[in-house]
Design a binder for these strands. Structure first.
Length: 130
DNA sequence: CAGATGACTCCCA
DNA sequence: CTGGGAGCCATCT
């Protein structure tokens, strides 16, 4: 095996992930779009190679699959998320309607050369959904 | 350069 | 909901 050297692109992924607010989650696809020039799978690979030490500064647990699915390797991702207030449904998926991130602020994105997320229709967050 | 791979996503049955 | 298959893009063999 090899030590895994984070590439420039991986570093960009980590930077984007660090923008996800506490208590919210983003999908692999969202991160890929924000960073640009890579797809969801590469985001997964970047996080997969995250070293223990590094994991402390990069909130990898806030990145989930499009359906809100988590952990593929018995990592205690759910535990970490619940600790910051993220709720799950009966199926073990994150309640995306409540916690999905809206992407970086346009100012931050512009300042760092990232791409803000396209309009995601009004997710009014009326928390009313039963 | 070709082939395999993966913490993904989308579509159809 | 489950399962299979194609598409995707950077890396590694």
């Amino acid at each position: 095996m090899q030590p895994f050297r984070p590439s420039e692109l991986d570093e960009r992924v980590y930077l984007a992930v660090q923008q996800i607010p506490h208590g919210q989650v983003a999908t692999y696809g969202e991160i890929a779009t924000v960073v640009g020039r890579l797809d969801a799978r590469e985001v997964g690979a970047a996080l997969g190679g995250l070293a223990e030490a590094r994991a402390a500064e990069v909130p990898w647990q806030r990145v989930v699959s499009r359906e809100g699915g988590i952990s593929t390797r018995g990592l205690r991702q759910r535990e970490l998320l619940e600790a910051e207030g993220v709720s799950f449904d009966e199926q073990g998926h994150v309640r995306m309607a409540r916690h999905q991130w809206d992407g970086p602020s346009p100012q931050w994105a512009a300042a760092h050369g990232f791409t803000p997320l396209p309009e995601r229709g009004e997710r009014g967050e009326q928390l009313s959904l039963f």
